[in-house]
Design a protein around this nucleic acid. Structure first.
Length: 227
DNA sequence: GCAAAGATTTGCT
DNA sequence: GCAAATCTTTGCC
């Protein structure tokens, strides 16, 4: 796995799709199939956190492949990236969506925990609303966005720099056994309107078409046939 | 030092 | 369709 991640990021993306993100071991383990990622490649990618060069926040992007790069976005969501390409070349794959396959109850509990934390200032009514919303949500929607992956897998700053290729890590990647590579579709990255062209339009979002767990941006409204 | 904006999600108008 | 929530990082004075 590490060897694949150390190559070019688009190739790495096509191998990460279909692989599993795993948290913990035993009865508490959570696992999910990765179905949507985005590539951020090089200091000259003006959509990437690496665009200002090496800083304290993005330092692990400049390190060896297979390591977790975790950052806090909008002051409330922790996003998980897998570092790619050789050391000194800053690149990573943002994990945007996964399909839960194991430990669904733990993921739901983790989602509820963070949802409640966020709305608790707004009162008991808001807390109950959040509990109910996440509690009745279909399993395939528990991690259908980058912030929601962070919530469902209890990801935070403590995971930054973790080796995702070490099977002893609390958070890790595992190749899909047996299954061949899934079909992959590409599109422009989401939420980077601040970036100039050509970066804004680069088709560096990769996803498994048809997955029920895609983020809103990758979910395709089925085209209506002309009458 | 301070001001501004952000690789998001949710809920209300 | 739009704004709020929330806090770290970056950039400018």
């Amino acid at each position: 796995m590490r060897g694949i991640l150390g190559g070019d990021t688009e190739t790495a993306a096509r191998h990460v799709l279909g692989a599993f993100l795993v948290r913990g071991t035993g009865p508490e383990a959570r696992a999910a199939r990765i179905v949507e990622v985005e590539a951020y490649v090089g200091e000259d990618d003006l959509a990437s956190h690496a665009r200002f060069g090496r800083t304290w926040r993005n330092a692990v992007m400049f390190g060896p492949p297979g390591v977790a790069y975790v950052y806090l976005v909008y002051g409330m969501y922790h996003c998980l990236n897998v570092v790619t390409e050789p050391a000194e070349q800053p690149a990573a794959l943002l994990i945007r969506a996964v399909e839960p396959v194991l430990g669904v109850d733990s993921m739901r509990a983790a989602r509820i925990d963070r949802a409640v934390r966020r709305v608790r200032r707004r009162g008991e009514e808001a807390v109950e609303r959040a509990r109910r919303a996440v509690g009745t949500m279909p399993a395939e929607r528990l991690a259908c966005g980058p912030g929601l992956v962070g919530d469902a897998f209890s990801i935070d700053a403590a995971d930054d720099g973790l080796d995702l290729c070490d099977e002893a890590s609390s958070l890790r990647l595992e190749l899909a056994a047996g299954a061949g590579p899934p079909p992959v579709q590409a599109g422009p990255r989401i939420g980077i309107d601040y970036a100039p062209e050509p970066w804004r339009s680069r088709p560096w979002r990769f996803f498994v078409p048809g997955s029920p767990s895609l983020s809103a941006g990758s979910r395709r409204v089925p085209r209506q046939e002309a009458p």
